[in-house]
């Protein structure tokens, strides 16, 4: 527990965390604005985005919040790789020579960091969605219509993505390599395997597919079918599995290396 507190102290005594928080919230404000702005848009008489007074709108809007996951994954990767970049890993390992404990403590701190970011993001979305729904005369969904499932799913996904980032960071050690890997993985690989039907078998098992299954409310936006996804508990296990596998792999390989 003291190691988890030390890890949180490490994060909160440098600037990065609030810079990332500002970036996440700005980015999501933009995408939330688009969802609200384009709500009810029709093209040739076909509804493209659900209107603001529909339950679908609320589900689609809340689901957008999961796109903060890329940034918490990068934050997670940075939490680990900063230690190697500034060689603070030396004093970390001198204080805690059993290196697997350091990884475990970082994952523990990652749970809290993911929760804090998740809650901040959900508050931001509430500030946007609630007035949008009420002003357009819709009924605000709180405990029904799949909303609790989405909110819980977003929180879980953000926590697990933070851990995913920490795992990658522990495995790669190099900050730039870790961030590029996370970005390529999440911006390039995952969209491809989740979009192409033949690859969706794989896609369901990617972190993105797993995260989608957590928030899957059954609303289909666009042409993409979501039937290929795992059940929510399966998705959570898959995400947890990634963090665990990377963490264990890192403890057994890269973190054993000499610190010179």
């Amino acid at each position: 527990m003291k190691l988890v507190r030390a890890e949180l102290l490490k994060l909160f005594t440098t600037h990065l965390w609030w810079i990332m928080l500002v970036v996440v919230l700005s980015y999501l404000t933009l995408s939330l604005g688009l969802v609200i702005g384009f709500a009810g848009l029709e093209q040739n008489g076909v509804s493209v985005f659900p209107a603001r007074d529909t339950p679908e709108f609320q589900r689609v809007a809340w689901e957008q919040s999961i796109s903060g996951s890329i940034l918490v994954a990068i934050l997670g990767a940075t939490m680990m790789t900063t230690e190697f970049r500034y060689q603070t890993i030396t004093s970390t390992f001198l204080t805690t020579p059993r290196r697997a404990r350091v990884v475990a403590a970082k994952l523990g701190a990652g749970v809290l960091v993911g929760l804090i970011f998740g809650l901040a993001i959900l508050v931001l979305f509430a500030v946007g969605i609630v007035p949008a729904v009420l002003l357009s005369g819709g009924d605000l969904l709180i405990t029904e219509g799949g909303i609790p499932r989405i909110l819980g799913g977003v929180l879980a996904a953000l926590v697990l993505y933070t851990l995913f980032g920490i795992g990658i960071g522990a495995l790669l050690r190099n900050q730039i390599a870790a961030i590029v890997t996370v970005a390529v993985w999440m911006f390039v690989l995952e969209p491809i395997v989740n979009a192409i039907p033949q690859l969706q078998v794989v896609g369901a098992w990617t972190p993105a597919g797993a995260a989608r299954s957590l928030t899957n409310s059954g609303v289909d936006v666009g042409q993409m079918g979501l039937d290929y996804l795992l059940p929510a508990w399966g998705g959570a296990l898959v995400l947890l599995g990634y963090a665990a596998v990377f963490g264990l792999l890192a403890s057994a390989t890269t973190l054993r290396r000499d610190i010179t």
């Binding site: 003291k2 190691l3 507190r5 030390a6 102290l9 490490k10 005594t13 440098t14 600037h15 990065l16 900063t82 500034y86 060689q87 603070t88 030396t90 004093s91 970390t92 204080t95 805690t96």
Partner: peptide
């Protein structure tokens, strides 16, 4: 060890507080 093992953005006292916390 080398005098470079510090995060440049962290204050001196916070560097030591982290050590205290981790070491109990």
């Amino acid at each position: 060890l080398e005098a470079t093992n510090f995060h440049p953005g962290r204050t001196a006292i916070n560097h030591l507080r982290i050590l205290c916390t981790a070491a109990g």
